[in-house]
Design a protein around this nucleic acid. Structure first.
Lengths: 150, 150
DNA sequence: GGATAATAGTTGATTTTGTAACTAACAAGC
DNA sequence: GCTTGTTAGTTACAAAATCAACTATTATCC
């Protein structure tokens, strides 16, 4: 379809707008992987993110997860509760500061993490294979930069 | 922070996982622009997407917007209703098929579109300036490919 | 050391999204 | 032409995200 007057005037193409492209690519690329944790474990995105952070970084607090992944504390709080219910993690109140809780994966949590890691690695490889190796590396670098800005 | 046993075993780094990176970059890069349409017009993301599609492609149906932007029809339906309430668009039932409605921006809708376009173009330039010109072009191409996969 | 501010995390109310069922109109096969 | 299936769009209900207010604890500073 050709563009109309309103568009020609300022030559703006939605299909080139970076935030739009990033959102579309993110949604699209999340879909397939989402099925893995949703169908298998009934997990939500925030939950696997918390799970992955714990698996990746070991014992850590809710606040630290929120800072790293830029997730709001209420979302984390609810995700942690659900993961605790499913016996995927345990909380230990900190000795030094009783407001803080240290979170840690249980063996079941680690098992889930490992399985999802495998699926994630495979899926990531599949996505990366859409590009040349050096292009994919550059893509990761640029996305990291965009994710870290502010 | 160093990685723990669970992570070392299978060398999976969350910070390199493409769907995670894409989501983080998308969220981060949307924030500033989101303020523009939220604060100025009280719009939600789906609403400006519909607005932009109408501004970009002219008269079009709800279904076509949904296909192009991969937005579910219920979301579109609600966004169209809100944009209509704000008098940013009008609906005209199709002559040939009375199930279909042709959507069109009003002058007010076009004005909002134009203003947001300006902001968008500026913001896009700012994002693109984080990279070399050819890198930014490659980024757009890769994102388009990821958005179109399936 | 006692008032004030700040921080970690939770809870509740409101808004937004997602899912499924629905209406109205058209299309196809017989 | 009438049953069966499909499509565009809406609506109702359930699930989830957002925002504000809250508790409990620690830090600050006079």
């Amino acid at each position: 379809m050709t563009k109309t007057d309103t568009a020609k005037n300022d030559a703006f193409d939605l299909q080139d707008f970076l935030p739009y492209l990033l959102n579309r690519a993110a949604e699209e690329s999340s879909l397939e992987f989402q099925r893995a944790y949703k169908d298998r474990y009934g997990m939500l995105r925030t939950e696997w993110r918390v799970l992955f952070h714990l698996g990746n970084y070991g014992e850590i607090t809710a606040k630290e997860i929120g800072e790293r992944a830029r997730i709001h504390k209420t979302k984390i709080s609810r995700a942690v509760s659900k993961l605790e219910l499913r016996r995927f993690l345990t909380r230990t109140p900190s000795e030094r500061d009783r407001r803080v809780e240290h979170l840690k994966l249980t063996p079941a949590g680690k098992a889930a993490y490992r399985e999802l890691c495998g699926i994630a690695r495979q899926y990531d490889a599949k996505l990366a294979a859409m590009f040349d190796e050096d292009e994919a590396a550059l893509l990761r670098k640029m996305l990291q930069k965009l994710a870290e800005m502010r």
